[in-house]
Simulated assay, not measured.
Amino acid sequence: MRTHIVARFAAIVLGLQGLAILALVVWQIWALVAGDTGSFESAVALVVLTAVGAVAVLAFAVATWRGQSWGRSGGIVTQLLILAVAIGAMTGAYAEPAIGFALAVPAVAALVLLVLAVRAAGRRAPGAASE
């Protein structure tokens, strides 16, 4: 199955997001080693969960690149979660609108690309309804 160009762009954005999450893991490990944490156990748990998230996003990127629907679906869910975090960063008592904006822009771009990739895949699928 040939992957549509939009899906390739979506996979690239997902891959960059996965690499950014890996960079966050490195930063968290650095803070853990430097003793810049309130609770060692909580910090280790957060590092593990962040690493699992990074691996998942990278897996979604690879699957999207290969044209597999589960990668697109997981990528869409990931973008919605990132947008929820971005909205949280933009609002509230400790709002950081710049951080929220920096999270929201690539998430919206990836979400649009992924939805377009789903639509393109539906057009190519055998037995798909014609427009």
Rank of each mutant, 00 (worst) to 15 (best):
R2N: 06
I5C: 00
V6G: 03
A7E: 10
R8A: 01
R8P: 00
F9N: 09
A10E: 04
A11V: 12
A11F: 14
A11Q: 09
A11P: 13
I12A: 13
V13G: 11
L14D: 05
L14C: 05
G15W: 12
G15M: 14
L16D: 04
Q17V: 10
Q17Y: 09
L19C: 06
I21A: 05
I21D: 01
I21H: 13
I21S: 01
L24R: 10
L24I: 07
V26N: 04
Q28P: 09
I29W: 15
I29N: 00
W30R: 12
W30Q: 07
W30C: 04
W30F: 08
A31V: 08
G35W: 03
G35Y: 03
D36M: 12
T37C: 12
S39D: 15
F40V: 04
E41A: 09
E41M: 09
V44E: 01
A45C: 04
L46A: 13
V47P: 07
V47S: 03
V48T: 03
L49M: 11
L49P: 02
T50A: 00
A51T: 02
A51Y: 07
G53E: 11
A54F: 13
A54P: 14
V55M: 15
V55N: 06
A56K: 14
V57W: 15
V57F: 14
V57M: 15
L58Q: 09
A59S: 15
F60D: 10
V62F: 14
A63G: 11
T64A: 12
R66A: 01
G67Q: 11
Q68D: 08
Q68C: 02
S69F: 13
S69M: 15
S69C: 07
G71S: 05
S73G: 12
S73F: 15
G74C: 05
I76A: 10
I76W: 10
V77G: 07
V77N: 02
T78A: 15
T78S: 15
Q79E: 03
L80N: 03
L80K: 05
L81D: 04
L83Y: 05
A84K: 09
A84D: 10
A86F: 15
A86H: 08
A86L: 12
I87A: 09
I87G: 04
G88I: 13
M90R: 04
G92A: 02
G92T: 01
G92F: 12
A93W: 13
A93C: 06
A93I: 10
Y94F: 14
Y94R: 04
Y94D: 08
Y94H: 10
A95Q: 01
E96M: 11
E96L: 14
P97D: 02
P97N: 00
A98L: 15
I99R: 11
I99M: 14
G100V: 08
F101Q: 00
F101K: 01
F101S: 02
A102W: 07
L103W: 06
A104M: 00
A104E: 05
V105L: 07
V105A: 05
V108N: 00
V108M: 00
V112P: 03
L113K: 07
L114S: 01
L114V: 03
L116K: 02
A117K: 05
V118T: 02
V118W: 09
V118M: 10
R119I: 00
A120I: 02
A120P: 03
A121H: 07
A121E: 13
R124Y: 07
R124D: 08
A125M: 09
A128Q: 08
A129M: 06
A129W: 02
S130C: 00
E131L: 11
E131F: 12
E131P: 15
